[in-house]
Design a protein around this nucleic acid. Sequence first.
DNA 1: CCAATGATGAACAAAGTGTTCAGTTATGAA
DNA 2: TTCATAACTGAACACTTTGTTCATCATTGG
Lengths: 184, 184
Amino acid sequence: MSGDRRVRRTRRVVQEALVALILEKGYDAVTVTDIIDRADVGRSTFYSHFTDKQDVLFSNLDELAFLHPVPAARSGELFAFSLPMFEHVREQRRLVRALLGRRGGGQVYARGEQLLSVAVRTELVAAGARASASLDLLVVCVVGAFMGLMRAWVDGESTATPAELDAAFRAAIEPGVRAALGQE
Amino acid sequence: MSGDRRVRRTRRVVQEALVALILEKGYDAVTVTDIIDRADVGRSTFYSHFTDKQDVLFSNLDELAFLHPVPAARSGELFAFSLPMFEHVREQRRLVRALLGRRGGGQVYARGEQLLSVAVRTELVAAGARASASLDLLVVCVVGAFMGLMRAWVDGESTATPAELDAAFRAAIEPGVRAALGQE
DNA sequence: CCAATGATGAACAAAGTGTTCAGTTATGAA
DNA sequence: TTCATAACTGAACACTTTGTTCATCATTGG
């Protein structure tokens, strides 16, 4: 079926090695040599599967469902993605800490920020906001607050539960958003 | 007086070279070799003044007044730092873009985030909030929103004026913060 | 003027990157 | 089980970057 067993194994051990090393030294400090030593694969094997370190990092992204915010179920409910995302992250703490936290080099974080921006913008437009420069700035604020909570959490600066994080996010952001929506 | 003229010159040209190179290729892509070529100083000269690339980056920080939020003048006014900071940034756009933007490698950004967190927390406590886990989360949201605006702006994603950015920040954040303060 | 300090540039070892290739091993299909 | 195929290996390679050392030259400020 989908590829050789050896291929699957090699890709898996390389990805796992990178995650382990990021948690130990941080993304920037990890070298390709570190990875192949830890994964115990040959250098040429590594380069026949990945172009470089970043490629390994991104190859993990498909598994990260939390990067893809779910759309709102009920209308009128804002930011339905919030609680499910925090909960999803809790379940995959190790992987998420490595990829999304400060030690992760910020690249996956930036990708999450971008995906979330699209989702938030769509949600606000659906809720009645009209596209404008000030809407874009509002989206930046909402996403900044949410991603700030997310990173503080995965970096261990907070020991809150997903429900508490969700509540804090809504308490900080919803009043301002509702007020902005009300004026349209 | 304060050092040799040659010393001042060397430090200056090296710092300027780094800023120029960051704007061209981004912090991560800049090498020490790039810097000394651009600055036209000897390799040994570079290392007699700076330990590495990051050291040059941080040696610029003293000039960055915008990293040090001013305290509120009138009581009752929240987030007085906001407008002055945006204005200060506009005046030093080139340097700030290099150091604070996405191309800057995120290290100065993280420092700004940290300084701002302390300022926001102090301000909220002065306004009547009591220290708690949920206050910490609120601070994260406020700082996340502000720094998000700042970065989007210096990265050119927005062409808004400082006044518009300040207004967007307050509109998004103040209602939630006032509500949280009111419950104490 | 001149001793002191800084700048120079070349050379160096060390570490990392990405490629190549001939030889070995595991795989899955027949 | 056989076997052609595809993957893995490991060593060697050229290359880039880093950070240090040192003998020599240039500028500075007293």
